[in-house]
Write a protein that binds this DNA or RNA. Structure first.
Lengths: 164, 164
DNA sequence: TAAGATTGACGCCTCAATCTTA
DNA sequence: TAAGATTGAGGCGTCAATCTTA
């Protein structure tokens, strides 16, 4: 589709793979978004809380376990302003909070609240079940492994970017 | 990452594949969006024009070669309202136009204009080059083929949805 | 009654500019 | 001067409601 002309440098199979990748990602995100909405979360909020939850469980000290805004923005595919916005939303609903860094007064660390952890724990089973249903029940383990390594490489080459 | 607990039904490799899929799709879309912006197009506008361009080149009659709004909305991952909005934008910039259907007065067919075709032809090489650089130069042909079939299956199971 | 499409309100996200501290 | 983060303006896309024709 869309001009399968060899001069353009991509053959039909490649184009098909590209479109399948984009469309699969889009549709998966859409299905996920619908399910997360039942728990009052957007996909980004969910990703954010999941990261913060992990950080909190791995923290050596209860007073730690947060993440810097910049770390989060780089880890998630989102601008810094978008992250600021969502963290504010999460603060309004009491699922996360801001703390100042001890060493650098410019920095802000985001941390999950107990309510946030509760929410994530409630949300996770349904989320995993949905991903399992739409992705892993349809794809063989070998295919999974291939995709994981191949897409990991793609992501690696795309990651160095920096955003506003 | 994010609670690799077997009780949740997904193991670490599966979770990794899922995250890689989402992130690869996101980052690819972002890189593509940046490049398309140089040609004054959003990703959705580009997809829209590409479809309409194909439809016009395959039309038996010059007066045909358009697509119904519903067809487009189902083909692209977008709501009908979103499609209406974008088609209006494309009309403003003269890249596409609306026509009434001959048989059903409720229907609207979208058609690409000569200016739209020119724009697509101008935009395509850079787009393909970017996709080639970030996706196909990093992934082997075997991996491509695996992804194409596997993700095609995923898309197939996700497609039946209907939207407002 | 239902199907095709559009409108208006609203939330999300990005960009550019700004503020604060290093 | 630069880094970390935020703000305000503006575009995009969704939902719910509406309009028109079948």
């Amino acid at each position: 589709m869309t001009i399968p002309d060899p001069r353009h440098g991509l053959d039909a199979d490649q184009l098909g793979a590209y479109f399948a990748l984009i469309e699969a990602g889009d549709r998966l995100q859409r299905a996920v978004a619908d399910q997360l909405a039942e728990h009052g979360l957007t996909h980004l909020q969910f990703s954010l809380l999941a990261r913060l939850h992990d950080a909190s469980t791995q923290a050596p000290d209860a007073s730690l376990g947060g993440l810097r805004m910049n770390e989060l923005a780089d880890a998630l595919v989102v601008s810094r302003s978008g992250l600021t916005y969502q963290l504010t939303q999460l603060e309004k609903t009491g699922l996360a909070e801001r703390t100042t860094t001890p060493d650098d007064d410019r920095g802000v660390v985001a941390r999950i609240t107990p309510a946030g952890s509760t929410r994530i724990v409630e949300t996770m089973p349904g989320h995993v079940a949905l991903v399992k249903q739409y992705l892993f029940d349809v794809v063989t383990p070998d295919e999974i492994e291939t995709m994981r390594t191949a897409l990991g490489r793609v992501v690696e080459h795309l990651r160095p970017e920096r955003r506003a």
